[in-house]
Simulated scan of single mutants.
Amino acid sequence: MTSDPHTNDRVAQSVARKDDHIRLALEQRRGPASSNDFDYVEPVHHALDGIDIDEVTLDVDVDGWVWPAPIYINGMTGGTDNAERANRALAIAARENGMPIASGSLSIALDAPETAPSFRVIREENPNGLVFANLGAGRSPDDAARAIDLLEANALQLHLNAVQETIMREGSRGFSTWLRDVERIVEAAEVPVIIKEVGFGLSGRVLRQLRDLGVRIADVSGAGGTSFARIEDERSGGGYAYMHHYGQSAVNCLLDAPADFPAVLASGGVRSPLDVIRALALGARAVGVAGPFLVAAMDGDEETAVNETQRWLTQTRQLLALLGAHTPAAATGIDVLLRGRVREFSELRGIDPAAFARRTYN
């Protein structure tokens, strides 16, 4: 560490926070999967729609950029020994199965270079794969360039986490410059910039703001999965329990997304390959998964992570064949029923639920 005691204290706090995040996220993930808004999206089964699985290809087009799989390993962690172990296993899984992978926030590596190896392992274990660096809004274009260089990244995930920062005891309390900060980074970055939330959702209005800034890819990252509001509340000693389920789900964000946004991705609360199909059916170009893969990496080993990610790809392909979709993009043509609170959200936002149920109606 540096010789500045204030900097050392800040770095030590960040390192402890990263391990807290892993521990508390795993506590949320272990045990039965909880219900969320994906359960209110029901694909209509047409018994004669199935095709041969060999007819299904998994490539996806993300704003003219071809990814080899419709599932990506979303940004999670880094900065500690535990995080390095997770990142190594996940990077190997990404390499073996052709999945894109994102790092956790690189802020700690920029401020404390001694922690950089726990992130760099992602590129070392996956030298030819699609790797996304991750950084929070509020950092400078120079910081963004350093983060990209650290991982020789193919893209930058720039995350918006105002809710998390509000609850975090050592978090930021100033967000008024974020829109301009995003614009500056998008203008300066030499790789695609993917704007994402951290589990509270990107509304249609925010997506329109981002589009107008020149953002072409966004991950809505909705509520319903790992709750960083709950994690930071537990770290801070409580008092914010009413915020644990705050935000919009990925399902509702996809429904709310403007039709002319170039490429919308989805994550947050994705528990199974069926949820992947549901997100694709609502317009996601690709789907990010974090919690289930973190459990595989931390509770098992590298082989466990490889096998789990392979299972997700295999079963996603099987479900596409079952539904008669030759590609992930073709899932936007399947009939889906929007029920319960998702239907209510749609109606309140002026979206016609029946249109999704009658896509193949004749």
Score class of each variant (00 low, 15 high):
T115H: 08
A133T: 04
T57I: 02
K196D: 11
A257H: 12
Y242V: 08
G269M: 06
L320T: 08
N128E: 14
S118D: 11
D9M: 10
A147Y: 07
E187R: 15
T7I: 14
L135S: 08
G31M: 03
S34V: 15
L24W: 07
N8K: 14
N252F: 00
S249A: 09
E42L: 14
G324D: 03
F261E: 13
I122D: 00
F345P: 09
D212E: 14
G340K: 11
T177W: 07
A331T: 08
A331Q: 02
L202D: 10
R359L: 07
T332D: 04
P292S: 11
Y361K: 04
A296S: 14
N252C: 15
A16V: 02
N307D: 15
G138E: 10
S35L: 02
E183R: 15
H326K: 15
P328S: 09
L26G: 03
V182H: 04
T226E: 02
G138K: 05
G79F: 12
E187Q: 12
E42G: 00
I101D: 06
A257L: 10
L280G: 08
D54G: 15
G199Y: 02
G104V: 11
D352M: 05
V193D: 09
I167N: 14
S105Q: 07
V41R: 05
W65M: 05
V215R: 11
P262T: 13
G31Y: 09
A147I: 05
I122E: 00
N36I: 10
T115L: 03
R10P: 00
D233L: 12
V182N: 00
A94H: 02
V11F: 03
G268L: 12
Q157H: 06
D143E: 14
D4M: 01
I351S: 10
T166C: 11
G291C: 09
N36F: 06
V41G: 03
I122G: 06
E96C: 13
